Simulated scan of single mutants.
Amino acid sequence: MSDLKRTPLYDLHIALGAKMVPFAGYEMPVQYPMGVMKEHLQCRAAAGLFDVSHMGQVVLRAADPERAKAALERLIPQDVLGLGEGRQRYGFFTNDAGGIEDDLMFANRGDHLFVVVNAACKDADVARLRAALEPEVTVKLLENRALLAVQGPKAEAVLAEHHPMVAEMRFMDVATVPIAGAECWVSRSGYTGEDGYEISVPLAAAKDVAQALLAHEDVEPIGLGARDSLRLEAGLCLYGHDIDATTSPVEAGLTWAIHTVRRVGGDREGGFPGAGRVLPEITEGAARKRVGLLPEGRAPMRDGTVLFASAEADTPVGTVTSGGFGPTLGAPVAMGYVDAAHAGVGTALFGEVRGKRLPVSVAKLPFVAAGFKR
Rank of each mutant, 00 (worst) to 15 (best):
A146E: 00
G346Y: 03
L238W: 09
Y239H: 14
R188Y: 01
G297R: 08
T321R: 12
A149Y: 06
T283Y: 00
L365Q: 05
L83M: 14
A15Y: 00
P280Y: 02
A132H: 07
V177W: 02
G196T: 00
R74E: 14
A343T: 05
F350P: 05
D242W: 03
L72Q: 04
A226M: 01
D195M: 04
Q31W: 12
C121Q: 15
D339L: 12
L147W: 09
M105E: 01
K5N: 12
E183D: 13
A313D: 15
R374N: 12
E66A: 15
V345R: 13
L238Q: 13
V201D: 09
K140Q: 13
A146M: 01
S189Y: 02
I100S: 09
L294V: 13
F92H: 11
L72I: 02
L83T: 10
G266Y: 08
A131M: 12
P77N: 06
E296I: 00
K373Y: 08
L60R: 02
T247P: 05
G274E: 02
G84S: 12
V261M: 09
P164E: 07
T176S: 14
A348I: 02
L294R: 15
S310R: 11
K356I: 07
L213N: 10
V338H: 01
G91F: 02
L4D: 10
L142A: 11
V30Y: 14
D125S: 15
G323S: 09
A348L: 14
P22M: 04
